[in-house]
């Protein structure tokens, strides 16, 4: 479980996060939604220790994050940033193999190669496994980065807008993979998603953020209400639901 206590973050005069208190359950798929500039990415970056909070604490599985050693933390939590413009000419397999570093420390063993191969298979990357990452399409690169975080094999996986650059088929595939990581491997996946329909149909828990604060947090069925979404995004919503699916229309109201 990730526990966040009275977390504050400011950049100069600007307040990014205001007194965040949050308990994120383990073994669930959690979606962070909210308008641009709500502080979603900053929150993830602080949990992943890439940014320092001005005040407040983050605890993962009962231990304050700063008290983990570098290696322990990197086997506990993996983070995929929103922008990954690596200008290095590396092969797909090589890049994915970097994700194994916390386990292999640079000397890849048979088990590492097995995990890498499995993940490549799972992410449908077999055909480009020996291509250079600057030669493949944006969607393929996104899947490669995701594969890299997957082979890191951490309990917690933080994804900042993993559906960027993906067409519908690949976006659905990524969400299914995320679902499988939670259901079969008992991982906790926390992702920032902009398409709220993906959040509604795949996430166990949805956290709505606005203006540096948590506005709502609940299961998808409770969260997906017109009034909640309207206060969150300041536009009109129409929620259509049947027994298994929830669809929000906000395109032309």
């Amino acid at each position: 479980m990730i526990e966040i206590n009275a977390l504050n973050k400011t950049y100069g005069q600007r307040t990014i996060l205001k007194d965040i208190n949050l308990k994120i359950p383990k073994g669930k798929l959690i979606s962070l939604i909210g308008p641009n500039g709500a502080g979603k990415s900053t929150l993830l970056a602080i949990i992943a220790r890439l940014e320092k909070a001005n005040r407040g604490t983050v605890t993962i599985d009962g231990k304050e994050i700063m008290r983990y050693t570098l290696t322990d933390f990197s086997t506990k939590l993996g983070f995929l940033k929103q922008h990954n413009n690596f200008e290095l000419k590396l092969r797909v397999t090589e890049l994915i193999a970097f994700g194994r570093f916390p386990h292999s420390h640079g000397r890849l063993q048979d088990t590492d190669f097995e995990i890498i191969d499995q993940t490549i298979e799972q992410m449908n990357l077999s055909s480009i496994r020996n291509a250079f990452i600057d030669e493949i399409s944006g969607g393929e690169r996104q899947r490669v980065f995701l594969a890299m975080v997957m082979v890191q094999d951490t309990d917690y996986i933080l994804l900042d807008e993993p559906l960027n650059n993906l067409d519908m088929r690949h976006a659905v595939e990524i969400m299914q993979v995320a679902r499988r990581l939670v259901n079969e491997y008992n991982k906790t996946v926390i992702m920032v998603v902009h398409d709220i329909n993906f959040a509604a149909n795949y996430a166990d828990v949805i956290i709505g953020m606005k203006g540096g604060e948590i506005s709502f947090m609940d299961t998808a069925h409770i969260m997906m209400r017109e009034d909640i979404l309207q206060t969150l995004f300041d536009i009109e919503f129409k929620v259509m639901r049947d027994d298994t699916h929830i669809i929000c229309n906000y395109y032309n109201l």
């Binding site: 992943a48 220790r49 890439l50 570098l70 086997t75 690596f86 590396l90 994700g99």
Partner: peptide, 16 residues
């Protein structure tokens, strides 16, 4: 090579 992928990436895989 890992450092060449950026500070955040480096931290994420547990390299100082």
């Amino acid at each position: 090579t890992i450092v060449g992928l950026g500070r955040d990436f480096t931290k994420n895989v547990g390299v100082n």
